[in-house]
């Protein structure tokens, strides 16, 4: 049985004890008037005892889950990292596209002998390469 299954089982046992406790509590309330104080107190303590066990199972479930969560959350971090790399790849391709566009503009400026545009296009290419 895996870690998650153990934690789920502990949680289910906690819920089972909780249900038994509430059933006993309902019984106690329904018959409290017909009972001796001593019996009422005893059943009250039993409800409390069952709830103690229920709490213990929930705490056990938490401890098992925390103990086993490392692998799962490392995996989630790796998944986020993988998505970010894909996003970075798109950003890198966009950079290449920008440089290509500047190179085209530079060629057009040289062909039209537009000195100011040549200077601007060269500046832009340098800027794109550095960024």
């Amino acid at each position: 049985m895996g870690t998650a299954d153990d934690a789920i089982l502990a949680n289910k046992l906690g819920q089972l004890y909780q249900e038994i406790a509430t059933t006993l509590e309902d019984y106690l309330h329904a018959h409290a008037g017909d009972m001796e104080k001593q019996d009422r107190d005893l059943l009250g303590e039993r409800v409390s005892g069952l709830l103690d066990f229920s709490d213990k199972f929930f705490s056990l479930s938490d401890r098992i889950a925390f103990a086993g969560s490392d692998t799962a959350f490392n995996g989630v971090t790796a998944a986020a990292q993988s998505a970010k790399e894909a996003i970075r790849h798109i950003a890198a391709v966009n950079k290449v596209i920008n440089i290509t566009a500047d190179v085209i503009t530079l060629a057009a400026s040289i062909l039209t002998q537009n000195g100011a545009a040549v200077v601007e296009a060269v500046r832009s290419i340098i800027g794109d390469v550095k960024s």
Binding site: A4, S59, A65, F66, F73, G75, A78
Partner: peptide, 16 residues
């Protein structure tokens, strides 16, 4: 792994 991670946080929420 994501499914397992959500199961764990869900369990904690349910336990608490």
């Amino acid at each position: 792994t994501l499914d397992l991670a959500i199961t764990f946080v869900g369990l904690h929420a349910n336990n608490l």
